[in-house]
Nucleic acid binder design. Structure first.
Lengths: 337, 337
DNA sequence: AAAATGTAGCGAAACGATTAGCTCGGTGTC
DNA sequence: GACACCGAGCTAATCGTTTCGCTACATTTT
């Protein structure tokens, strides 16, 4: 490989001058500049980022750890993050914790070893774990995304889960439903807990109590939602409306409906929070809240880049986005029967 | 940050010894080893990959350039690639060329600047462009994925597009259909061209000629497929069966059907090649070929890692995978009417 | 006892860039 | 003409590792 020294020799100048030409960091007289550029071109020289990074203490790498790369929601986040990161002049290193604290720990270690300049993390959310991460990782530019953990030292970007769920629930209540069931995610995550709480709050405010068997939670997975839905809906006392906590789970629920020959929205109304691209093909179209993944990701990276470039001593910022209710055809007024 | 020198000083040894301890690269007597390890632990020292990489000339980074990160097919590929790369001890840097040669060129430049050890590329497939890439990038470990370009110098991993399309088409023919239409992708890509060819071959072998207006190609995008489908199907002479070239396009076609109130499979049979996860929720389930993305990605990375570690002078290898036909409920025998 | 052999650990030169500080002429001022 | 000043370009230190070659001591061989 050709190095800066080769170029310097070929152009009969010092390496300092070559560096100055490359980086425009000092005035170089036109004739010299031309000679250097000719040499660069002739030798097909390209500066080694690695050496540059070692010297400068930066890597121009931003890491993204998502909790589940197989989830289209996070896949979309990767898409948005890649674009944003590239626009800021960085490159994106992707990790998948697969909801496992152990993987997350490894990824964080790797990130520090690679001297990434910062990390955008969708935490798996185990509190014990986070105490540890915090002790080790203090000062490392990090933005937590989507699921707040009890960490007041990092920047966070989240969605208002409680509002999302109560918005959707209120819509179902407005249609006259009272036997409303829910299938939500793991309760140690705010995306699980918050959405359940939002749903229950909305019910409570109208003085409606959910039936115990109609409130279920599991993992944010299509197959889990499928089996929970099958079990809950294959009974005579099934709910007349169902709130599903995320897009992937909604797919599972719709599959269960098809298999049970329950018609939506005639036999049951379905509504969800959070959306994924694959859902666009579903019929009936789902009534749901849309979460601005792209804007959220952009904002998260803005915060991250700001912290990388402007310093770490600023107080942490917490940005909360609001979801928007989008009506499909998956809900119908309660029929008196 | 604590460096190897700090550790050396603290343990009263030379940096060479510390390095030997870290890497197990030379025998160090137990007492010294213990002292060094204690110092490492006390100072919370972690070696800088950046310095190590500069010295060793490796980066432990593998790059992935996909043609369209928003496409669930490629999103799934990122998922598989991350897992495989991690298993080999590398980290994954992701780029999105968004089907634009210019972006791909930039990504390739960036990859070389970062001294990634190798790259897995889903090429955008412009031949002119590839001549250039080849001239510059010769010798850089690269595996081309999914779309063959005219580059006999790189390893490639592809699917047999012709076989996939003719398999599906034959199935439609077996059901009695002869007015079969097709919506395929860009013809400069083998995933576009090959699938169209496969479909036409299958038709020709049975002596069936497609109607001119029923053979359409566009981009691999949901919205493009939607509008092409709307136009083709909203006419009295519409085909009785439709072959759609990929998963994302199939979603668009199904959406068009819903909007036109054409019932599948009663009014029209739909079949596609290639699958995406979001499609699982579709009803009726699509009859399609499944492409083994995960195995293909694993194989591609095996080739890549092998080339990185075993050297570049081996002859290029070209691995071709076979698709498998999966029956759904989206096709029905032709009704005589 | 001298020579040969082995070996634990050290010193210092890389890797390929950036950059502070210096040199060395040429101008401008008094 | 002496002095300060300025600007273009060079020298060399530095970033944090790895690793080659060497020392110096211990052990074995003759």
């Amino acid at each position: 490989m050709t190095t800066i020294k080769d170029v310097a020799k070929a152009a009969a100048v010092s390496t300092a001058t070559v560096s100055a030409v490359i980086n425009d960091s000092a005035y170089v007289s036109p004739p010299l500049r031309a000679r250097v550029q000719a040499a660069i071109h002739d030798l097909k020289y390209e500066p080694s980022q690695m050496a540059r990074n070692l010297k400068k203490g930066r890597s121009e790498l931003i890491a993204l750890i998502v909790a589940d790369l197989a989830n289209p929601f996070f896949a979309r986040m990767v898409w948005a993050a890649e674009a944003a990161v590239a626009a800021w002049g960085y490159s994106l290193v992707v990790f998948n914790s697969d909801e496992k604290p152990e993987n997350e720990r490894k990824a964080l270690a790797r990130i520090r070893a690679l001297s990434c300049d910062g990390a955008l993390v969708v935490p798996v959310g185990l509190p014990t774990h986070y105490a540890q991460r915090d002790a080790e990782g203090r000062g490392f530019p990090t933005v937590l995304f989507g699921r707040v953990v009890d960490d007041r030292h990092s920047d966070t970007v989240t969605i208002d889960n409680v509002a999302a769920a109560s918005q959707v629930t209120n819509y179902l209540l407005d249609l006259g439903h009272t036997r409303i069931g829910s299938i939500t995610g793991p309760l140690h995550l705010t995306t699980g807990r918050g959405r359940l709480d939002g749903m229950l709050q909305a019910m409570a405010q109208r003085g409606v109590a959910p039936e115990p068997g109609h409130v279920r939670s599991g993992e944010f997975r299509e197959d889990v939602a499928y089996s929970v839905a099958r079990e809950m809906l294959d009974r005579p006392d099934r709910p007349t409306a169902l709130y599903v906590a995320n897009g992937v789970m909604a797919l599972g629920v719709m599959r269960a409906l098809a298999d049970l020959s329950i018609h939506c929205p005639n036999d049951i109304s379905i509504a969800s929070t959070d959306t994924i691209s694959g859902i666009g093909g579903l019929r009936p179209r789902l009534t749901r809240t849309e979460h601005p993944i792209i804007e959220m990701t952009n904002e998260a990276l803005r915060l991250l880049v700001d912290r990388i470039q402007r310093g770490k001593d600023k107080p942490p910022r917490n940005v909360v986005f609001q979801p928007a209710l989008v009506l499909g055809e998956s809900c119908a007024p309660l029929r008196q029967s």
